[in-house]
Write a protein that binds this DNA or RNA. Structure first.
Length: 114
RNA sequence: UUAGUUAGCCAGAUGGUCGCAUGCCUUUGUGGUGAAGAGCAUGAGGAAAGUCCGAGCUCCACAGAACAGGGUGCCGGUUAACUGCCGGCGGAGGCGACUUUAGGGAAAGUGCAACAGAAAUAAACCGCCAGAAAUGGUAAGGAUGGAAAGGGGAGGUAAGAGCUCACCGCACGCUUGGCAACAAGAGUGGCACAUGUAAACCCCACCCGGAGCAAGGUUAAAAGAAACGCAAAGAUUGUUCGUCUGUUUCUUAAUAACACCGCUUGAAUGAUUUGGCGACAAAUUGUCUAGAUAGAUGACCAUCAAAAACAGAACUCGGCUUAUAGACUAACUAAUAAG
RNA sequence: GCCCUCAUGGUCAAGCGGUUAAGACGUCGCCCUCUCACGGCGGAAUCUGGGGUUCGAUUCCCCAUGAGGGUA
């Protein structure tokens, strides 16, 4: 799990990022991000009902959080992020999800350690 | 031993590293139990699911009265309550063990009964008998249908008919057994306002007010602005009685919610004993067993041959229904082998 | 979380307990035409699934499944 200070919590914040942020896409994962001035940057997750029932949805969320937790030091701190799971991600394991996240961050130019 | 049926029970385990939530304790920080760290303890289910029933709890005035509307419907028991469960009675199915069953009222009234058939709640097409015929008497036999004025048999007759008789069925009251549903027995009636349908309207008996924890409540004081307002509004199907008086929104500071309570000790549950066929009840003793709020159980490694089913708490219980890999236990059935 | 609605050929759909399950568009086959179009004739439905009530169920009742909506 993520530490509490790095979690994106409010519905308003999600809507703000969706409206004003930029998006990058991959086949199994999307990322929405926007610049922020507050210091502990925040990451939120969206897993829709298309993915599966509540067990598989929460498993996908846990896997995403675990990946993000291990990569926290390598992510640019000046942005807030939302990670959106797309259909098919429930079949992937943690290693391929990590690769996809790094690909997306490199696309946006926000991955520190190339 | 193998295969199957029924019932019950478990629902991966152990160790290590990193990480999350809650509680306790402690350190640092702050105007501050807002933050951060260390340690210890605890951390999803048998269905948590569907939301199909029943309750607790909260608000709606005190939750009332009448109508409407809805539900249930053999008897007894059980329970906080139930449309649940247990035991019985009747019906249906089965050779049987057993399984299954929303099972009051059709002489209170209304409606419906296609097609077929002469005729569908109403008598007469063919037929039988009498008669020269007109016509009259019949309902045994025929065909249709789910259903055709109790059944098939004997007597009887012009031919027939509960017209008469025995048996069975039906109705009525009586006796016996049973708490009761009901069963058994002997008797009386000659069989009706005559079929079916109430999961058609309906009648009878009993029950039900509405909304739902995002219910609802607590938190110090203040400033400014806007909207609706004196008869409307305020969570309650329609009407009547009855209650209250400003209400709502935005901005300012961490601030009317990103806080706190409700929130988890409860009709709780394990074991033993007693009562009961059983559902269940009583007594003794032990246990404390999630409480999140973008929402906590994860990742990796090792071992167990393999970790793979259905599936994730959101106020809480009692049931019902549906999904479900595999392991174990008991009873029974079939086959094979041995004694 | 709570509360509702719907399901009928490929699509949109009507349907008084008794129908050959009405139509429209599409599609397939045949006819018409020198050919295509138009036109004509015909075919294709386990009425979402499983039980029950009834002589008889798309319709009435119960359970399930799958879609859609409302509330905040």
């Amino acid at each position: 799990m993520l530490p509490k200070k790095n979690r994106l919590k409010k519905n308003k914040q999600f809507n703000y990022i969706y409206k004003h942020g930029q998006t990058k896409h991959d086949s199994k994962l999307s990322m929405c991000y926007i610049k922020t001035k507050y210091k502990p940057f925040k990451i939120g997750f969206t897993v829709s009902k298309k993915i599966g029932n509540s067990v598989t949805r929460s498993r996908v969320k846990r896997l995403l959080r675990e990946v993000v937790r291990n990569e926290l030091k390598n992510i640019d701190e000046n942005y807030n992020y939302i990670l959106i799971a797309r259909e098919g991600i429930e079949k992937e394991n943690i290693i391929s999800i990590r690769e996809k996240l790094i690909i997306l961050l490199n696309k946006a130019g926000l991955y520190k350690k190339d």
